[in-house]
Simulated scan of single mutants.
Amino acid sequence: MESQLSKGLVMDTEWKEDLEGWLEPFLIALGHKTRRRMCPAYIAGLIGPGDRKSVQPMASRASEIGYDQLHHFVAAGVWDSAPLEKVLVQEADRLVGDAAGFLVIDDTALPKKGTHSVGVAPQYASSLGKTANCQSLVSVTLASREVPVMVGLRLFLPDSWTSDVDKMTRAQVPKECQIARTKPEIAMEEIDRVIATGARFGCALADAGYGSSGSFRQALTDRGLLWAVGLSRRQNVYPSDVALIFPVASMGNKRKYHIPDQQPVSAETMLAKEKWKKVSWRRGTKGRLTCLFAARRVRVADGHRHRMLDNRVQAMPGDEVWLVGERRLTGEQKYYVSNLPADATLKMLAATIKARWICEQAHQQLKEELGLDHFEGRSWVGLHRHALM
């Protein structure tokens, strides 16, 4: 019995030494001696045994570190997380960075009781499929070869928070973050951070919560990125051969602006009569993954808006892109839009679109294995540091 206990202590020491070795680039970025000790201890608590990964139970399992020290490190210590975030992107790029890889934008909900934890409010949680009292984090994942590495998690503040300065001050929300920002705006800030660090990826992916924003898609294009994103089935689109004309008015002033020579229709209508084909994009644990897909070249109706002769306000056609539809075995239909090259095959489009689901695996692992949703503090700094760890 004594020898077994001794062997267990040796193994425990060995894996913690291995962890500190792996963390060395991060510890260099932390600098301060005490923080260099706290960081491995906190992460050891997250990846070690025990169901609950909040500060108190982690401290109780770590004989060499007390609760006050661990809590101070994550919630109150004066240190900048930006250097660690930079190292995280660099290490992720070393592991999975690939010109053929993906940068996946999504969000994940952390269910919470009460109203005092930063960002908590009744809001739609895509991971739950319903409105719930929760915190919502915009996530950024670098992925290749079906391996995801989360490189960013940023809290979204709903209106009930950004309209209440006192509430934000109590939760220690930084002044520069005490403004109303959409999830696509937060995502673009994170994408710029990842690009600036030099991470390699070939295509940005996002669901319709981001892809339905014309300004988000345009921002990706402006940065020279390839992208494939979800789209509302109700989004109006034009055929790719739509032309812009200057109709001659029978009376009144001459028109100042051109108008499309065809009417836009919804994405659903545009693909309804297309030929849908069964496409397999990869092999899963239960065999080949297949769905019905259809695609055609279109121009999304999200350009500048003009008032028509019949007094309707109509959005002009944007750049030419792929519109892709997916019909699942459940009968559910999904729609996507992508600026992949015009010669992209249907299988290439399907495989790119479906690569986004790898981030759901990362979300699940962060919650089930590493306690992402176990943090019990209320502050902005504490939540983001916990997520970073």
Rank of each mutant, 00 (worst) to 15 (best):
L5A: 07
S6D: 12
G8N: 12
D12H: 12
E14F: 11
D18H: 08
I28Y: 06
A41E: 10
I47S: 11
S54C: 11
Y67R: 13
V74Q: 05
A75I: 01
L88P: 00
V89K: 01
E91D: 02
V96E: 13
L103M: 08
I105D: 07
D107N: 08
K113F: 04
K130G: 05
T131S: 12
S136G: 06
L142K: 12
A143S: 14
A143N: 08
S144W: 07
R145F: 10
P148S: 08
M150H: 09
T169W: 02
R170G: 11
R170T: 11
K175V: 14
P184W: 03
I186V: 08
M188H: 08
R193Q: 09
A199P: 03
G202V: 06
A208F: 00
S213H: 07
R233I: 00
R234L: 11
P239Y: 02
F246E: 12
A249C: 06
M251T: 14
K256E: 12
K256F: 00
M270S: 14
E274G: 08
W276M: 06
K278R: 15
S280Q: 11
W281S: 09
T285Q: 13
L289I: 14
R297T: 06
D310K: 05
R312P: 00
P317V: 06
G318H: 04
E332W: 03
Q333K: 15
M348T: 15
W357I: 09
C359Q: 13
A362Y: 08
Q364P: 00
E368K: 07
R378D: 14
S379R: 06
H386A: 10
A387F: 02
